[in-house]
């Protein structure tokens, strides 16, 4: 019995070999020339296998090659990704602890909940992937265009239901703003993740969905089960070139529904280390292998560096604060 159980543990632990590593315990700040002199720890605040994890691991692999030190990815799931983010904020700002974060734990959740940090407690490094949200209906829907759909919603407030991938999502806030600023009232129905939202639309239980156009949704658009009506990004999306943006359609301010993933470090990390990490990140996003690994389609066409990433967080904060309180 014991032998059998021990055998499984060995079997299982073999395949996990070296996955979990120690902390990068750094002392005083180093200059950029010496950095990095030890392994770097990269927190991923979501479960392994998700889009954040994928981006995190892709970047980690490149950083390891380029910086010559191991980069250990550590999944710290929980509490809407705020556990991992709290861990980062409390880490030594010496460049040896980084996090692959999203706008949700950096902006949305701190506005809603009483957390020990907010978006200003991190140093932004770069945006790695962006997934613009798409408003889509089933292929057999009576609404051919976004205008038709949104006009119908305006004429009969609350009668059209729109599936969301979750309650605390940039897409949800955007639908709230659609009602507040433009008087177009749909009924948002939050589901648990992209797959459930997609299933709800496939089964005809909702009229539309407003969801990041990641693989799960994109596959249904490609197989023509769904029809994309509009995208929520400021510019048209290269892989959905015929789909108008909400801004084009006259909803100029509705450009914040893109899900953004980026690399951050604890506040106070020396600026020369930040710029070194920033340029490594830029190189990673140009490297064909890394691009392939984290999904070419979702890498921003124009590199979004430290400052632009900061502006992005600040803008989101200012827009969301009156809606979510904080």
């Amino acid at each position: 019995m014991v032998t059998a159980i021990v055998a499984v543990f060995l079997l299982v632990s073999c395949s996990s070999g070296g996955d979990k590593g120690g902390k990068g315990e750094g002392g005083s700040a180093e200059s950029a020339e010496e950095y990095p002199s030890q392994e770097i720890r990269e927190i991923v605040p979501y479960a392994a296998g998700g889009p954040t994890d994928l981006a995190g691991r892709g970047i980690a692999a490149y950083f390891e090659d380029s910086l010559g030190q191991p980069v250990v990815v550590e999944n710290q799931e929980g509490a809407s990704a705020t556990i991992g983010t709290t861990e980062l904020v409390n880490s030594e700002p010496n460049g040896y602890t980084l996090e692959m974060a999203t706008t949700s734990p950096l902006v949305l959740v701190p506005l809603l909940e009483n957390l020990p940090y907010d978006k200003d407690d991190v140093e932004t490094i770069c945006v790695t992937i962006e997934t613009p949200a798409v408003l889509a209906v089933r292929q057999d829907s009576e609404y051919e265009t976004a205008e038709e759909f949104l006009e119908a919603a305006q004429a009969n407030p609350g009668t059209l239901s729109v599936a969301l991938p979750g309650a605390n999502t940039p897409q949800g806030v955007e639908l709230q703003r659609l009602a507040d600023e433009y008087g177009v009232v749909v009924t948002p129905v939050p589901f648990n993740g992209d797959s459930e939202a997609v299933a709800a639309l496939l089964g005809g239980n909702v009229d539309a969905l407003f969801d990041p156009a990641g693989d799960v949704v994109f596959d249904r658009l490609e197989s023509e089960e769904f029809r994309a009506l509009a995208v929520g990004s400021p510019e048209r999306v290269p892989y959905l070139p015929d789909v108008p943006t909400l801004a084009e359609l006259g909803y100029e301010t509705l450009t914040l529904s893109t899900s953004t993933y980026g690399l951050v470090a604890p506040k106070g990390t020396p600026s020369d280390l930040i710029s070194e990490l920033e340029s490594t990140c830029q190189a990673a996003l140009e490297n064909p292998e890394t691009r392939e690994q984290i999904g070419e389609r979702y890498i921003p066409e124009q590199f979004i560096g430290s400052e632009e990433f900061r502006t992005l967080l600040d803008e989101a904060w200012e827009t969301y604060q009156p809606i979510l309180g904080g």
């Binding site: 929980g78 509490a79 809407s80 705020t82 556990i83 709290t86 959740v109 809603l112 909940e113 009483n114 957390l115 020990p116 979750g166 309650a167 605390n168 949800g172 939050p190 648990n192």
Partner: peptide, 23 residues
Amino acid sequence: GQDPVAGTARFTFGVQDLISGLD
């Protein structure tokens, strides 16, 4: 943990680890 529709946390008694509920 998180209210599935409103998105805010409830019954967490201020414990951050409970924001998305018990595991």
